[in-house]
């Protein structure tokens, strides 16, 4: 994960503390969408040292909202907002959609729902300066009732060579939605092919 929150608590005090901690960590958390744009190309190629900081080489901006990390990270990894365009997040975050969330119940109180929807739509793929994140915003995100990251054109292009025995037929993966089963840096927004290990099959070399 890009950030570590106290798992069981969302009390205002600790939330504020978590947000302050995030602010203090600054560049290490990679909120570089707002500045040092010139390094963006370097991010395409794994880890880099920039000044005193180790740049994480993320492809999408890591999660930077404690409430989002907790609420949307309970049943699967907390997907980074840059993995879908804002309009898709808007549909996912509608009250009815959360009640029937890909066959599960992810309903939220209205104020939390609004906060998280705001976070997602203001950090959507189309607003990112990172080219991989931007790619997730191109074209549709699937014809199902709800948009999916795994149904975007970019995602399908990058994964179509992977046989289903390594995914659906693999008890340690289960489905493509499980990014972090294969992408070791998924929690930090790192998706480059050099950090892929498919459980039971090892490194991916194509």
């Amino acid at each position: 994960m890009g950030i570590h929150t106290q798992p069981a608590r969302l009390l205002p005090g600790s939330l504020i503390a978590a947000l302050l901690a995030l602010g203090a960590a600054g560049p290490a958390l990679g909120d570089d969408d707002d500045h040092n744009d010139e390094y963006d190309d370097y991010h395409e190629h794994g880890e880099r040292h920039v000044g005193r900081w180790v740049e994480p080489g993320e492809d999408v901006r890591p999660v930077s909202n404690a409430a989002y990390a907790e609420e949307c990270g309970a049943c699967h990894m907390a997907y980074q907002p840059g993995l879908l365009p804002g309009a898709a997040w808007q549909r996912i975050m509608a009250p009815d959609a959360l009640m029937d969330h890909y066959g599960d119940d992810a309903s939220l109180s209205d104020d939390v729902r609004r906060e998280l929807a705001g976070y997602l739509t203001t950090h959507g793929a189309e607003l990112s300066r990172k080219s991989r994140a931007r790619a997730f915003g191109v074209g549709d995100s699937g014809s199902g009732t709800l948009p999916r990251i795994t149904a975007t054109r970019y995602f399908r292009n990058e994964h179509h060579e992977i046989p289903s025995r390594m995914v659906e037929g693999n008890p340690d993966v289960g489905s493509f939605s499980n990014c972090n089963a294969c992408h070791q840096g998924a929690g930090d927004g790192v998706y480059n092919e050099h950090r892929v290990r498919i459980p039971g099959y090892g490194r991916w070399d194509d």
């Binding site: 069981a8 608590r9 049943c75």
Partner: peptide
């Protein structure tokens, strides 16, 4: 469905369980 691991429910091994009423209410609902 997702395969994500879930921490033990027993407060004897996971003392954070049942300490946050809002969390308990939310998950019992879902």
């Amino acid at each position: 469905k997702t395969g994500k691991s879930i921490e033990p429910m027993a407060p004897s091994v996971n003392p954070e369980r049942l300490t946050d009423p809002a969390k308990v209410a939310k998950w019992l609902g879902r």
